[in-house]
Simulated scan of single mutants.
Amino acid sequence: MTKTEHYAVFGHPISHSKSPRIHGLFAEQTRQRIYYAAQDVAADAFKAAADAFFADGGKGLNCTVPLKELAWQYAGRLSERARKSKAVNTLALQADGGIWGDNTDGIGLLNDLTLNHGINLLDSRILILGAGGATRGILAPLLEQHPACIAIANRTLEKAETIVNEFADAKLSCCDYAGLAGRQFDLIVNATSASLGGQLPPLTDDLLAASGCCYDLAYGNQATTFVRWGMARHARKSLDGLGMLVEQAAEAFALWRGIRPDTAPVIALLNRERQIPNSFS
């Protein structure tokens, strides 16, 4: 009989994580024998905890806040998308004992936007709010969709400028929030954590173009403040990040197990449990 192999998600805090449930559903669907747990790991304990996990036979890790940059440093080898983003959310033990680092956040967002919700990014005007690690993780896949432009808005302009300079793409620009005056966008992505606390950056009412869409990387059991902002401004779709969470998990699962699960029934189940219709999630 094939033995059960161990995987985990590290983060701090981590008790709210839906990842064990998601990977459990994936394993059931694909008939894979795995055990997946959540472990609270602070930044200063990450290396020791990761060393112990792999030494004890662990096969793969997901890493969330505040560990993605540390996981990037920990990995012995990096995917191209991880190298560009300078953040890793997936670690995989390789046959020779090396640790592979990948970032599946960007492709997770892209799959949710384009495959699950039919949002076409070609020639679109995209705005990303925030200039942290989450923005780094999604930029390369968005640029590969050939948008007309991507603007990064952040309270501290220098942080946004650093990202723009590193990615060095002609379609990429940045500004502070005051610099958004008079501009409109077809897709606005909230990559800050502010909306979970009921806060929003200072956004003008005319920022979203007619038939534009909003997407919050954060998610909760209720619509986030940013999702509600988009709905109040008649966004064609105003979505939260649960679909992205499931899609990025599916990419990690495929990296580890060599089989990609069907995400649609998992997303639908999680939405039913939190009583949010698919059109708003």
Rank of each mutant, 00 (worst) to 15 (best):
G108Q: 05
G108R: 07
G108P: 05
G108I: 00
G108E: 00
G108T: 08
L109P: 03
L109C: 05
L109D: 01
L109K: 08
L110F: 12
L110W: 15
L110K: 14
N111D: 15
N111K: 14
D112I: 09
D112G: 04
D112C: 05
L113K: 04
L113E: 07
L113W: 04
L113C: 06
L113F: 02
L113P: 09
L113A: 08
T114N: 06
T114P: 05
T114R: 13
T114L: 04
T114W: 04
L115W: 03
L115M: 09
L115R: 14
L115K: 08
N116K: 07
N116Y: 01
N116T: 08
N116R: 11
N116C: 10
H117W: 03
G118F: 00
G118H: 02
G118R: 00
G118E: 05
G118Y: 03
G118N: 14
I119P: 00
I119H: 00
I119K: 01
I119V: 15
I119D: 00
I119Y: 00
I119C: 04
N120M: 11
N120E: 15
N120R: 12
N120H: 13
N120K: 11
L121M: 13
L121V: 10
L121T: 11
L121W: 11
L121P: 09
L122D: 07
D123N: 14
S124R: 15
S124D: 11
S124L: 05
S124C: 09
S124A: 15
S124K: 14
S124W: 05
R125Q: 11
R125E: 01
R125C: 02
R125T: 02
R125G: 00
I126A: 06
I126Q: 06
I126V: 14
L127Y: 09
L127H: 09
L127R: 12
L127D: 07
I128A: 01
I128Q: 08
I128N: 04
I128P: 02
L129Y: 06
L129R: 05
L129N: 03
L129W: 06
L129C: 06
G130E: 02
A131H: 10
A131R: 07
A131E: 14
A131K: 12
A131N: 13
A131S: 15
A131T: 08
G132H: 04
G132V: 12
G132Q: 09
G132Y: 10
G132K: 03
G132C: 03
G132A: 05
G133H: 05
G133K: 01
G133A: 09
A134K: 03
A134L: 09
A134N: 06
T135D: 13
T135G: 09
T135L: 07
T135S: 14
R136N: 14
R136M: 12
R136L: 10
G137I: 15
G137D: 13
G137A: 15
G137F: 10
G137K: 05
G137R: 03
G137S: 15
I138W: 08
I138Q: 01
L139T: 06
L139V: 06
L139I: 15
L139M: 09
A140I: 11
A140T: 13
P141C: 08
P141Y: 02
L142Q: 01
L143G: 06
L143V: 06
L143A: 02
L143R: 03
E144W: 01
E144S: 12
E144G: 06
E144T: 07
E144H: 01
Q145I: 02
Q145V: 04
Q145A: 15
Q145H: 07
Q145K: 14
Q145D: 05
Q145G: 04
H146W: 11
H146I: 07
